[in-house]
């Protein structure tokens, strides 16, 4: 089977699973995990876009002709940034959940009913 298909398929599967968890989850931590799984799937998808089977690192030297198949470095750089941003988002989310647990005494999203929906 084509390696690209496996990468794309599993990444998209992770994304769909993440959104599903985030939507159906009732526990706040579970929702955050869902968002995190979604982000991970997205990151994998982006990396696999730039991947070439048998490709090498995009390092330019004075012998430019040695490497024919270079992987695209930009998606990897983007994913690195996206991972860091995802961590920041998770940190902020967990901080809010901690406060919610303290104030509401529950992590069940159905019990957050201070505001009218």
């Amino acid at each position: 089977m084509d390696a690209g298909l496996i990468f794309y398929g599993s990444a998209i599967f992770l994304m769909v699973m993440g959104v599903f968890i985030a939507i159906t989850g009732r526990h706040l931590i579970k929702i955050l995990l869902g968002i995190d799984v979604f982000d991970t799937g997205l990151n994998l998808l982006i990396v696999s876009f730039g991947y070439i089977n048998g490709g090498t690192a995009p390092i330019f030297s004075k012998y430019p002709n040695i490497f024919k198949n270079v992987v695209d470095p930009v998606p990897q750089a983007l994913v690195l940034t996206a991972i860091v941003i995802g961590v920041a988002e998770m940190a902020m989310g967990l901080a809010i959940v901690m406060q919610i647990k303290e104030k509401f005494g529950t992590c069940n999203i159905a019990k957050l009913k201070e505001l009218k929906w």
Partner: peptide
């Protein structure tokens, strides 16, 4: 969420859920 009362936290979390995705 920085209002630190219940409503602020709830609003902040809802915003985060949609904003992150």
């Amino acid at each position: 969420a920085s209002g630190k009362d219940k409503k602020a936290l709830e609003g902040g979390f809802k915003y985060m859920m949609i904003g992150a995705i």
